[in-house]
Simulated scan of single mutants.
Amino acid sequence: MTHPHTDDILQRLEALEIKASFTEDLLDQLNLTIYQQQQLIDQLTREVIQLRQQVPENAAQGPRNLRDEIPPHY
């Protein structure tokens, strides 16, 4: 027969082990989420850089003239 105090300690230990296991799983999920978000941030950063390279340099100098953007058939 085990001592009641020992049973209480074993139950508490088992509860802590379960919590630790769930915490490890959650940490793994969070790490994966952070990794995926960083991959997306890196991809979006590359796309922004590419888009900036495509913008004509004079576009950043001031307001556009809408007449310059009228298609030739007008």
Rank of each mutant, 00 (worst) to 15 (best):
D42I: 03
D28E: 09
L40Y: 04
H73P: 00
L66I: 12
L26G: 03
T6C: 04
H3Q: 10
Q29D: 10
Q50A: 15
L16T: 05
T45N: 10
D8R: 15
Q43L: 15
E14F: 08
L51I: 06
A59P: 00
E24S: 14
E57S: 08
R52S: 02
Q54V: 04
N65I: 03
L51H: 10
Q36F: 11
E24T: 14
L44V: 10
Q43Y: 07
H73R: 11
D68F: 01
P71R: 08
L40H: 09
D25G: 14
V55R: 10
Q61P: 00
E17R: 13
D7C: 05
A15E: 07
I9T: 12
G62Q: 02
D25C: 09
P4H: 14
N65G: 02
N65W: 00
R52T: 06
P4A: 11
Q36K: 07
H3S: 05
Q37S: 11
I41H: 09
L10K: 14
D42L: 04
T33S: 03
Q54R: 14
V48Q: 11
L51N: 05
L51G: 03
P56N: 05
I70A: 09
E14V: 02
T33P: 01
P56I: 01
N31M: 05
E24V: 07
Q11N: 13
D28H: 14
E47Q: 15
T6D: 09
L66D: 09
